[in-house]
Simulated assay, not measured.
Amino acid sequence: MIRVLLVEDDRDLAETLLQLMQLAQMQPDHASNGKAGLTLSRVNDYDVLIVDVGLPQLNGFELCRQLRTDGIDTPVLFLTAYRSIDNKLEGFDAGGDDYLAKPFDNRELIARVTALAGRRSSQVKRLAVADLVMDCDNVIVFYRQEQLELSPTCYTLLETLMRASPAVVSRATLENALWGDEPPNSNVLKAHLYYLRRELTKVDAAELLQTLTGKGWALRQGKGCETT
């Protein structure tokens, strides 16, 4: 079941959308202002956030910015009465993943929520795995306050692993993230993984990068994986 948080201050619209989502076999929660929406988003695990832009106390764009700064990667669908391209671009710049202008067809809302569910947003500004932290705005990585010196390729490699963590990332996915549809031979990827592990070793974080033979690589805490 898809769990959704609706952050909407229009009570009539909110009641209509909550009923609509329940009929679509979704599990919705509701917040009537931005601050309440921010709090619920931080403490609960939602599949999708539906956020009105013109909210009291904290507007939808600022709510989303704070979530992305916190490293929360739940997909955000903005609702707004504004249809201009500038307004849409502002929403994407704030960390949103989709945008729906009012008035809208209820079927389209359900379709968009369903499409977003199960994804993780790529808009987060801060990623963290254990004590390893990536500041995406400033393109820097720290482990327990010690900064890692990474090449652009190793940074992209680490970012791909952190966004997927704790899941295993296949060779094909890593190669696509680094080189698109024209990857070099497999030894090049192995070389960059070696360089990344070397930098993690310098800050005593090498155990986070784990190799699962025949499956791929994962960045996570805990044992149970070959780490060669």
Rank of each mutant, 00 (worst) to 15 (best):
C136L: 14
T160M: 00
T173I: 09
A167V: 00
S170D: 07
F142A: 01
E175G: 05
E175F: 07
D47R: 06
E90I: 05
R119P: 00
I110Q: 10
R120C: 13
T153H: 02
V124C: 08
V51L: 15
R65P: 09
I72P: 00
G96S: 05
L158E: 02
N106A: 06
E146Q: 13
V113Q: 01
L77N: 05
R107N: 13
C64K: 01
V169C: 06
L148E: 03
P103V: 04
S84V: 07
D47V: 05
V139T: 07
K125M: 09
S151M: 03
E175T: 06
N87L: 07
S122M: 08
M162F: 02
A164V: 00
G54M: 15
N138V: 11
K88Q: 15
D52A: 13
F142T: 09
T156A: 13
G54H: 15
V168P: 02
D93N: 14
Y46I: 11
E149K: 11
T114H: 04
A81N: 10
P166A: 04
D70K: 02
Q123K: 15
D97G: 03
G60H: 11
R120A: 13
R126I: 09
P75R: 02
L109T: 08
V169K: 03
V129E: 04
D52C: 12
S121G: 06
T173D: 10
G91Y: 12
P56A: 09
V51T: 15
A172F: 07
C64H: 01
L127T: 05
G96D: 01
R68G: 04
L89V: 14
A172M: 08
G54P: 10
S121T: 05
E90M: 09
C154A: 12
